[in-house]
Simulated scan of single mutants.
Amino acid sequence: MDIAEPLRQGTSLIDPFGRHVSYLRVSVTDRCDFRCVYCMAEDMTFLPKKDILTLEELDRLCTAFVSRGVRKLRITGGEPLVRRDIMQLFRRLSRHLASGALEELTLTTNGSQLARYAAELADCGVKRINVSVDTLDPVKFHAITRWGDLSKVLTGLDAAAKAGLEVKINAVALKGVNEDEIDHMLVWSHERGYDLTLIETMPLGDIDGDRTDQYLPLSRVRASLMDRFTLEDIPYKTGGPARYVRVKETGGRLGFITPLTHNFCESCNRVRVTCTGTLFMCLGQEDAADLRAPLRASEGDDLLHAAIDEAIGRKPKGHDFVIDRVRAAPAVGRHMSVTGG
């Protein structure tokens, strides 16, 4: 078989570079109750309801990918837990966990709604969640998120722990904003049994500000951490792009997601679908495929599978992220909240 031709319906999806697509990230909404400075403009225009996939369509789309060998499914947004009746989707997708077709159903959230939904998420088979927390300073937290309340997020984290959910804290490293408290966040996370993953800011969407003023290379952060901590490389993987170390002094895990200082594309097994049914084969490229049209054109899934096949055949080798003074415009025009965080 020509490696450039993806496998047919009912079999695994393989891209032109021989990588098996086994991880799907699905955005269920472009809306969010925060306005994080690196993710959104403060005055966002959101999509009309008719453009958004229904919960039934999202279930059908996810099920099609599971039938093609996707083993890990992550629900994202915007903030996924602000989507009306979102737990209906989790309950439907949990059948794939029960059947063994899906290994993991996970969630990325800002934590604002966790107090309300943590127990129900656990009942649906969700075992692990990612929670975005960029600072433990309430004033700074409000400044970064514009609308966020740190105390509400911390209450949500307590609810997640009570429900038995494993938590990974995601923190975007921001120059001059939170770089002086990464040590503290590491210790705080590990004391509570959370993993911590640090993320470089990515050039996605026009925001109110200059990303060159925000960008903090994680190579620099890691070097600084090594002045205080012993970082031991480990082979731990969650299916995403993070590279992990064990922090000897705390016993906890620390991850680094480095799209700029250390390109992670060679092992990419991921694709993303937006809340409108647009499939992006790469977070850092504009090429995309419309899955909403084939979803709505037929009650059967033949057209949908054909569209997925064609798209996976175009999955690129990697992204072209750059942040510098010469390239002031974002590498990709859409906001992270549109693609799915």
Rank of each mutant, 00 (worst) to 15 (best):
A307P: 06
R83I: 00
D149Y: 08
V139N: 15
Q285C: 12
G300D: 15
I144K: 00
N110P: 05
G100E: 09
G333L: 07
V167W: 08
A242S: 15
D59T: 13
L13H: 03
Y236P: 04
T276D: 07
V139A: 15
D43P: 10
V247Y: 11
T155S: 13
A4E: 08
D149V: 14
V172I: 05
L165H: 06
I144R: 05
G277Q: 02
R146L: 07
T135L: 05
V187H: 00
A101L: 00
G209E: 12
L279N: 11
L150I: 12
H262G: 12
I312R: 08
T274M: 14
R192D: 04
F229Q: 09
L89Q: 14
V187I: 11
D213E: 09
K49R: 14
G18F: 01
Q113E: 15
F141Y: 06
T11E: 12
R296P: 02
P241H: 08
A293L: 05
K237G: 14
T45C: 08
R83Q: 06
I323S: 14
N269G: 07
M40C: 12
L260G: 11
S151G: 02
R222M: 15
M202D: 04
V177T: 13
D51G: 04
G318D: 11
V167K: 13
A289N: 03
G340Y: 09
I129K: 04
K248S: 01
P138N: 08
V338N: 07
Q113D: 01
G164C: 04
G239I: 11
K152I: 13
P138H: 12
L107V: 15
P203L: 15
A289E: 10
V172T: 12
S12C: 09
F90T: 00
L114E: 10
H96D: 02
G156Q: 00
F229G: 11
L24F: 09
R272A: 07
V131G: 03
F34E: 07
T261P: 06
Q88D: 08
D15K: 14
V326Y: 06
H184W: 02
Y236F: 12
D85I: 09
P330E: 11
F65I: 05
R222H: 13
R19Y: 04
D213V: 03
C32N: 08
A242P: 11
N178Q: 06
V28Q: 10
G341N: 13
C275L: 00
G77N: 01
R253M: 07
S267T: 12
L89I: 13
T63S: 15
R92W: 07
E310L: 07
S94V: 07
G10L: 05
R222T: 15
D137G: 02
C39P: 10
V172C: 04
A41P: 14
Q113I: 01
A119Y: 02
T109G: 05
K175M: 10
